[in-house]
Design a protein around this nucleic acid. Structure first.
Length: 492
RNA sequence: GAGGGUAUAGCUCAGCCGGUAGAGCAGCGGCCUUUUAAGCCGUGGGCCGAAGGUUCGAUUCCUUCUACCCUCACCA
């Protein structure tokens, strides 16, 4: 770094401005490579980060990288102003530069810009980890990777510069969200925003983050879900609303969980959960269609076929197929015995719903690789879902599973205010029993339901997990720019 | 929370059975007017994660701590 600062003052001495105000680009690197036949001999301007330098005395080569890709540049002492050549000589890998000159093809056949002007656009003071590559495609060997995962997550800006495939993950992420938005807009749904800071949290079983508002002198919770506010908007008369936003859950972190994560929730009046199933499979498969041009993809070496319709499998049937026991109607003692016979560590305070859920997550979920809707959950697991039309012990709920994990949650929304109050009261009991994830009773939400909510289908989809699928990434940290980390130790 | 792993140069890593460190790349200086992991010559660079212990002597063995990674648990 000291050396770079010296170079900086040398640049000032030469009369060069290491931090100018702009640069007019005529082409991106990719455009020049793609159009090189038309552009041969023509003047172009490109700008980007200098990723390699090969000096040869009075000549030099280098590659500059912009968002679109890399292009080689060629600098000859006798073909550009003396100042520019001196500036080139003082350049380091990582510097941001602009080059103007004509396109030609080198002896070795690479399309290259021969500099008539070489301008420094921003001098770097920290050395960039240098990645060198040799070969193409499968033969490609990368040297000196910026490989330390911790550093890559902490200094994502460096990761993005040095590891181009990382940038692509986030391009995919952006496209997934944008196609999703387009899909929902095309259905005529309204994108809305609801409070992140909530006096009462609800809509999911999860521990919240708590904060405090000074003026009102009251605790506020960061939302764990958007659900209850979006349904208030359905009460208010919108036929379809959706929100794409961050939710916050004060829970553990692993490759499927980050304390803040992105959720899409959509609510549609006059529809039920069967409509939402079709919506999910059409939404996901159409995103695949737009990204890959087909509805199959490879995730971590396994082919996943997203072509609708996806199988619908009732929860109890799914368990029975895997475990060989039908858990429906079993009492608490039976369930405990079955669970421990299956090798699960049973906690004494678990109730029927929790036991069924545990058996399912342990024995069935990991095997749900291909997209599958698991349907019809026990009522005690789902305080906001409407009872099943054929069986009051179940609710009309489904979760889409794939890659051995859940990517969403949906139901026919409970709009009976009296039943809803009873469910809240049951949750309250759980809360008192020590279940710190049980939901709070929300009087205002009940009041909204008492004003009448139409039959409604609702759905939440975990965007991060969907992006993991589409970008073929093994961890949620790989699809979040700045995943949560412990604070850095104050060094330096 | 439990178990395992890792921590050595800017980066990636080597360093056996204890004798205070090495490679490639990057850096710096030089030569080189079509190179592409450019080449050639030269050169600087390390509190071997922290603290303690064993020992004549610790990067190496032991303990503790810290950070990160992985697996499990928790968390749908």
């Amino acid at each position: 770094m000291r050396v770079r600062r010296e170079k900086l003052s040398q640049l000032y001495d030469l009369g060069a401005n290491p931090y100018p105000y702009g640069f007019d680009r005529s082409h991106s690197a990719h455009e020049i490579l793609a159009d090189h036949e038309q552009l041969l001999g023509k003047q172009v301007s490109v700008a980007g980060r200098l990723m390699s330098i090969r000096g040869h005395g009075k000549v030099g080569f280098g590659h500059i990288m912009d968002t679109s890709g890399r292009i080689q540049i060629y600098v000859r002492k006798d073909e550009l102003p003396e100042l520019d050549f001196s500036v080139f000589k003082l350049s380091d890998i990582g510097d941001i530069v602009g080059v103007t000159g004509e396109v030609f093809i080198t002896r070795t056949g690479e399309t290259t810009v021969k500099a008539a002007k070489f301008e420094l656009l921003s001098k770097t003071l920290r050395p960039l980890p240098v990645v060198k590559e040799r070969g193409e495609g499968d033969e490609r060997v990368v040297y000196d990777q910026f490989a330390d995962k911790e550093l890559r997550y902490r200094q994502r800006y460096v990761d993005l510069v040095v590891n181009p495939e990382v940038r692509n993950v986030f391009v995919v992420r952006s496209r997934v969200v944008s196609y999703m938005r387009q899909f929902l807009d095309d259905l005529g749904f309204l994108e809305v925003e609801t409070p992140v800071l909530q006096p009462i949290y609800g809509g999911a079983s999860a521990r919240p983050f708590v904060t405090h508002h000074n003026t009102l002198d009251m605790p506020l919770y960061l939302r764990v879900a958007d659900e209850l506010y979006l349904k208030r908007l359905i009460v208010g008369g919108f036929d379809g609303v959706y929100e794409i936003s961050k939710d916050f859950r004060n829970e553990g972190m692993d490759r499927f969980h980050n304390p803040e994560f992105t959720m899409m929730e959509v609510y549609v009046a006059y529809q039920d959960y069967t409509y939402m199933m079709e919506l999910v499979e059409n939404l996901v498969s159409s995103i695949a269609q737009k990204i890959f041009g087909k509805t199959e993809l490879i995730y971590q070496g396994t082919e996943i076929d997203l072509t609708p319709p996806w199988p619908r499998l009732p929860l109890f049937q799914a368990i029975e197929e895997r475990v060989g026991i039908n858990l429906y109607g079993k009492n608490l003692a039976d369930l405990k015995k079955i669970a421990s016979d299956l090798g699960l560590k049973v906690e004494p305070f678990w109730r029927e719903g929790k036991l069924i859920d545990e058996i399912f997550s342990e024995k069935v979920e990991p095997f749900l690789i291909q997209p599958t809707f698991i349907t019809d959950y026990p009522v005690e697991l789902s305080p906001l879902a409407k009872r099943h039309r054929d069986d009051p012990k179940l609710v009309e709920r489904f979760e889409p599973f794939m890659m051995g994990g859940e990517i969403g949650n949906a139901f026919s929304e409970l709009n009976d205010p009296i039943d809803q109050r009873d469910r809240f009261l049951a949750q309250k009991k759980l809360l008192e029993l020590g279940d710190d994830e049980a939901q709070m009773l929300d009087e205002d939400y009940l009041r909204a339901l008492e004003y009448g909510m139409p039959p409604t289908g609702g759905l939440g989809i975990g965007i991060d997990r969907l992006v993991m699928l589409f970008a073929d990434q093994p961890s949620i940290r790989d699809v979040i720019f700045f995943p949560q980390m412990r604070p850095e130790k104050p060094t330096e």
